[in-house]
């Protein structure tokens, strides 16, 4: 057995001709105010080379059928990896989807992905946009075929996965490692709750907003990830032109009709437009909707129904203003400017 191992080791070194590279495990740190990761990251623990490869793939247009659309096309770093100003993103052949591009951040801390929970595994979620005919319209198998023609990729996969080949699984794992490391935890709010310098940095309005948020919003936008990864019907009137059934699309259960994933609110100032279909252009419009724009239906979240049967979250104009001031403290300049998440060719 040992003899065999030794042999294969020697032959690897000889055949591949790659310099021995040290591929170190990255230091994945759970921020002090965060809950434990929802994903088992040990299963595909990020390494330096795996992370770098994932980042290169994220920015590579070869992940789409006609080599025009990369992940980063709809997930731009400066907008917390959303597609600023686009209700629906243009995918391949200039087609439009039916949902607003969600932010890519703190992915390892979430147990469900996409507005309908089409995936619950960080290493698998990339399958959905890659294969969606209106997004990238490609297959993993064919991406592997394309990348094998590029010697640089052959080398990088080999380094990232200990002699690994360019395969569907390794493409997914590299993207998973990149997304695992994409942690946004250095907003003004984070520094406030962690009592980091410059100390108590919230003004009175932001404090008021935080208190209101904890009373009125935090039961769904829970923990410092600002989502409980659940699916809820928040009373948004369905758009008859789309008739998006939400979670029911995945589960096939009528009880899931019009339920969509509670989104994280981190960097929310940067991720307009809002809601799964991007219908609201501003945070003010969102709060106006929560105040008095809801439609009743069988699956409406009970928390949004008051004892007297009225729907919505009562808010004065002043409270609205304070909430928005608070929400803006969730903007993380370090995250959106972090060169680690940007691929320079």
């Amino acid at each position: 057995m040992i003899g065999l191992l030794a042999l294969s080791f020697i032959s690897c070194n000889k055949d591949d001709g790659y310099e021995a590279v040290v591929n170190e495990r990255l230091d994945f740190v759970v921020p002090a105010n965060f809950p434990a990761p929802a994903q088992d990251i040990e299963h595909n623990y990020p390494t330096q080379k795996g992370f770098e490869l994932g980042r290169k793939l994220f920015y590579d247009t070869r992940l789409s059928a006609n080599n025009t659309i990369s992940c980063s096309f709809c997930h731009e770093q400066e907008n917390a990896f959303t597609h600023h100003g686009h209700t629906f993103s243009h995918g391949i052949y200039d087609q439009e989807g039916t949902r607003n591009a969600p932010a890519v951040q703190n992915m390892a801390f979430q147990s469900q992905y996409f507005y309908d929970g089409a995936s619950d595994a960080i290493d698998m979620l990339s399958i959905a946009p890659i294969h969606n005919p209106v997004e990238m319209d490609e297959t993993l198998e064919n991406i592997a075929v394309k990348l094998k023609q590029d010697k640089e990729y052959v080398k990088l996969f080999n380094q990232a996965f200990e002699g690994g080949q360019i395969t569907s699984g390794n493409i997914l794992k590299a993207l998973g490692q990149f997304m695992t490391m994409m942690v946004s935890a250095n907003s003004k709010y984070d520094k406030f709750v962690r009592s980091e310098p410059p100390g108590n940095n919230f003004n009175q309005k932001e404090m008021q907003g935080l208190e209101l948020f904890r009373q009125k919003c935090a039961s769904c936008h829970a923990t410092d990830i600002f989502t409980d990864s659940s699916f809820r019907n928040n009373g948004l009137p369905p758009n008859p032109n789309l008739n998006d059934l939400g979670r029911e699309t995945v589960t096939g259960f009528k009880r899931d009709r019009y339920k969509f994933k509670v989104p994280s609110l981190r960097n929310v100032e940067l991720t307009a437009p809002y809601m799964h279909d991007g219908r609201f252009g501003s945070l003010e419009s969102v709060l106006n909707f929560y105040r008095n724009g809801m439609t009743d239906s069988e699956t409406l979240d009970e928390q949004l129904r008051a004892e007297d049967g009225t729907l919505g979250i009562p808010l004065t104009d002043e409270e609205k203003e304070a909430l928005i001031a608070f929400l803006k403290t969730l903007t993380d300049e370090e995250y959106i400017n972090n060169p680690l998440f940007y691929y320079q060719t």
């Binding site: 089409a118 959905a128 993993l140 395969t167 569907s168 699984g169």
Partner: peptide, 21 residues
């Protein structure tokens, strides 16, 4: 290292891509 199960499954129509699995 020897086999990509995803590729094998995809070739046999045994993958889901709109929901991932």
């Amino acid at each position: 290292a020897q086999q990509s199960f995803w590729d094998l499954a995809a070739a046999n129509d045994l993958t889901w891509t709109w929901s991932t699995g």
